Amino acid sequence: MTNRIKVFIVDDSAVVRQVLTGVLASDPQIEIIGTAADPILAQEKMMSEWPDVIVLDVEMPRMDGITFLKKIMAEHPTRVLICSTLTETGAATTMQALAAGAVGFVTKPKLGLKSFLSDSSSEMIRAVKQAAQATPRNFGRILPTASASSGATQGTTQAAPKAASTSMAESSNKIIAIGTSTGGTQALELLLTSLPRVCPGIVIVQHMPEKFTAMFAERLNSICELEVREAKNGDRVNMGRALIAPGGMHMRLLRSGAFFNVEVCDGPPVNRHKPSVDVLFKSVAALTRDNALGIIMTGMGDDGARGLREMHDAGAHTIAQDEASCVVFGMPKEAIKLGGVDRIVSLSNIAAEINHFSKDS
């Protein structure tokens, strides 16, 4: 982006508006074009000059942030960065926002807000710059109602167990490894809800902090035929099960005799991420050959590109999401440049590729 990134801040806290304005305006590539205490006032102000990025709180008077976000995405798709508290309630609301079209989020504590925002200035600036590179998309997805996802409304993080047939309790002899980041929550929802119950075991890294991955897995589990859960150390990779790496932890594939399971472990960030797609993909490459399918999807940066190349070189099938369907084409683009991709596929066609891989002997 050659011009400065135009940012509008919507938050009912005067302290947040003031501190965020100071933090973001300190970067010469960012211009704050306005602030508002609620979405209705924001709409009026933005009519004169529309922003490139909206930084949006979710709990506000007159109109909540989710309602405002859905309205914006329906009428004027815009890059929206959610500013949410690090609580289970905040995580659940953030999941709703990402499903409604937000391109990312930044977290804030309930206490010590001013000092936290100042200390996290570089992270805030980077988040806005990343959001500015995204392509806002409205996939038209609506989250389950409270009755369909009661755990989220009650603040629990345990995904409801699904009745499993004997075949579904079998260990998967094929592995599907997926890596994604910015835009990945929407993309994964569209993909996983398109897959049948009879499917090879899936291991997933979605860049997301602690608490958010559990809520994300719980929501997906409530709307997918597959069992979707946040991975725990030692979990077996079974048919019909998708395991999502926990935020703040790496996940590796391990083999135990005829079975695959996962190791969830701590360690330094890789490519600035924990969990890292490269950590997962490289572990899959070391254990599998043509019985693995690696899929790299929408996301910023190059995490996963080297790991996918290792999978490719080991004989695995590899897919990259195409640019037209990505929110950010960074991760797939880097994997393609490294020569680790067999096929470039639209998001809407990835489920068919998985089904083909599942049936191919």
Rank of each mutant, 00 (worst) to 15 (best):
A97L: 00
T157L: 12
G140V: 06
A148G: 15
V128D: 12
A92G: 12
S165G: 13
G101D: 05
V106P: 00
A97K: 02
T107C: 10
G112T: 08
P136L: 13
D119H: 04
K110V: 08
G151L: 06
S150T: 09
A159H: 05
L86W: 04
C83L: 13
L113C: 00
T78W: 06
P161E: 07
S120L: 02
S165F: 11
D119Y: 05
G65M: 11
G90F: 00
F139G: 13
T85V: 06
I125F: 03
T78V: 03
S84L: 04
Q133K: 15
T89N: 10
A160E: 14
A160C: 09
A160P: 08
P77W: 02
G90K: 02
T93E: 13
K70A: 01
M95T: 00
A163P: 10
N138F: 12
S120C: 12
F139C: 01
A163E: 15
M73K: 12
T153S: 13
Q96I: 03
T87E: 06
T153D: 04
C83M: 14
S150K: 11
S147D: 15
E88H: 08
T67D: 08
L98V: 04
I66G: 03
T93N: 09
E75M: 10
A159I: 05
V80G: 08
S84I: 03
T166P: 11
A159N: 07
T135W: 08
A102M: 04
S120T: 10
S120D: 14
F116S: 01
T67S: 14
M95E: 01
P136E: 10
L117M: 13
T78Q: 02
S147E: 12
K162G: 06
T157P: 02
I142V: 15
K108N: 03
L143G: 08
R126G: 04
A102Y: 05
A152V: 10
G104P: 02
Q133W: 04
K70M: 01
A163D: 14
L98P: 03
L69N: 03
G90V: 04
S167A: 05
P144Y: 00
T93Y: 09
K114E: 14
L86F: 12
H76C: 05
N138R: 13
S165D: 07
T89K: 10
M73A: 10
E123A: 11
Q130H: 13
T67C: 11
Q133S: 13
T153E: 04
T87N: 00
V103C: 11
A99W: 09
V128K: 12
T87D: 00
K114C: 02
T153K: 11
T78C: 08
A74Q: 15
S84V: 00
T107W: 09
A127W: 04
A102S: 07
T145A: 10
V80E: 13
S120K: 15
T157E: 01
Q96N: 13
S147G: 03
G140Q: 09
A152C: 04
